[in-house]
Simulated scan of single mutants.
Amino acid sequence: MIVITEKQYRDILEHSKKTYPNESCGLLGGIIENETRYVKKVYMLTNMDNSPEHFSMDPGEQFGAVKDMRSNGWLMLGNFHSHPESPARPSEEDKRLAFDPNASYMIISLLDEENIVIKSFNIKGDQIFEEKLITVSE
């Protein structure tokens, strides 16, 4: 299970809408307690590819985010990215690039702007497990 605040949820949605029609991307920093992942901070990063079909995170921004996580005693829980024109499920490229089987891979579908969907997954090789995503008030 992964837990984010309502504000973090809204911030991810806004970042994804702002980068549309390209994919958005970012990192999730936080803690793990009793196998539940609590996001403490969402890091909005630049998609260096400027593409609606794939993303590459800015290395300098990634380094800064990881440095901030470490200074706060947090773990990198995973990442997020948007799918501007497809459902909130891992694409073949997402599965191929999912190197960390312990990470959360959050995907935002902007396919229907009236019904934006955010889902989170663990990807272990060919196995995909949807995580329960909980939003809590600040």
Rank of each mutant, 00 (worst) to 15 (best):
V39W: 07
T36G: 03
L45N: 01
Y38I: 09
K124T: 04
L133E: 05
S120V: 13
S86P: 08
L97E: 15
G64S: 09
F63Y: 12
I128L: 07
N72L: 05
E113G: 10
Q8P: 01
L111F: 12
H54Y: 12
D11R: 09
D68S: 06
R37H: 11
P101C: 04
E14S: 11
N72T: 02
D58K: 08
D11Y: 07
A103I: 09
E6K: 15
Y43R: 05
I116W: 08
L13M: 10
F121G: 02
S137H: 11
I118Y: 08
Y43D: 00
N115I: 04
D68I: 00
E138A: 10
T19W: 01
S16H: 02
R89Q: 14
K95T: 11
I4H: 05
L77F: 03
E85G: 13
S71Y: 03
F99A: 15
T36C: 08
F63T: 10
Y20F: 15
L27C: 02
I108M: 11
G60D: 09
M57I: 12
L111M: 15
R10M: 14
S104I: 15
S86C: 09
L77C: 01
N122R: 14
E35P: 03
R96M: 12
M57S: 01
E61F: 03
E35A: 02
F99M: 13
H15D: 12
E35G: 00
K132C: 05
K7N: 14
K40F: 01
I4Y: 04
L13D: 02
I4G: 02
C25M: 06
D94M: 06
A65T: 00
E23D: 05
I12F: 06
N72D: 04
S24H: 01
Y20D: 04
N122W: 02
T135R: 15
L27Y: 03
K132I: 13
G29P: 01
E113V: 12
D112Q: 11
I123Q: 07
I2M: 09
L28G: 01
F99R: 15
L133V: 10
F80L: 02
F80A: 02
N79W: 11
P59S: 10
K119L: 07
F99L: 15
K7Q: 13
V39I: 09
D100V: 14
R37G: 04
P101Y: 11
E130M: 04
E61I: 03
I32M: 07
E138N: 14
D11H: 08
F63D: 06
T46R: 10
P59C: 05
G78V: 03
T5D: 01
V66Q: 00
G64P: 00
L97T: 15
M1H: 13
F55C: 05
R37W: 06
I107N: 06
K7T: 14
G60R: 08
I108G: 04
I2N: 03
S16K: 03
V117H: 07
E130L: 06
E92A: 14
